[in-house]
Amino acid sequence: MNKNKIIKVKNLVKKFGDFVANDNLNFEVEAGEIFGFLGANGAGKTTAIKILTGLSKPTSGEISVAGYDIYKETEKIKRNIGYMSQKFSLYDDLTVFENIRFYAGIYGMKKQEIIDKTESLLDKLDIRNHKNSLIRSLPLGWKQKLAFSIAIFHNPKIVFLDEPTGGVDPVTRRMFWELIYDASNSGITVFVTTHYMDEAEYCDRISIMDKGKIVALDKPQILKEQYNAANIDEVFVKIAR
């Protein structure tokens, strides 16, 4: 098998009782790419991301993440991934630095390393003056950028983003994607779910889910040609019909 495939999913099935949330998914994600995971609400995106991050167990299927088996090597997977959920995931009542220190701490980072990295992060996000501000007092856009930065603070091989830009204005979304590109350039694989179709265009490859199945998977450009569409939005509408 190709070693560059950082996520391998073969025949993934997840059932909740009679309801099949993930119906025989097959896909691979290459190391370093930005992989977009698209689909309408309820298509099964979140279920799949939960399985890949170890929050949920599949009913059946062979899955490996970062080169580790999802059944036997969960601990190793956890050390090598980052995660940002659609719900906002920083502590409101802690300061910027306290949040960083806490999350870096649970990944076992050393004190000095945390301090050094924090400094460069504060400069990068241009929030040096807010190091000791409570998260509560920051605007949503900043919080989201910070949440992402914290999700990749421990240098994971893969970062999973579950609808990271929900409820954010277009300008902030644009800035957020710059951060994603940065991360991708530094070698982190990005696995992102979204239902903003314009964002899909930013991805290297996208998969489109519908009713628990993957119905399309390729480069955005190729999909557009294949479906004879001007943009991914049109592709999506055509597929969903």
Binding site: G54, E75, Y83, K87, S89, Y91, D92, Y103, I106
Partner: peptide, 12 residues
């Protein structure tokens, strides 16, 4: 808050 998910994804 959604922080529990993040904690559960972490090696903790």
């Amino acid at each position: 808050l959604g922080t529990m998910e993040v904690l559960l994804v972490s090696p903790l």
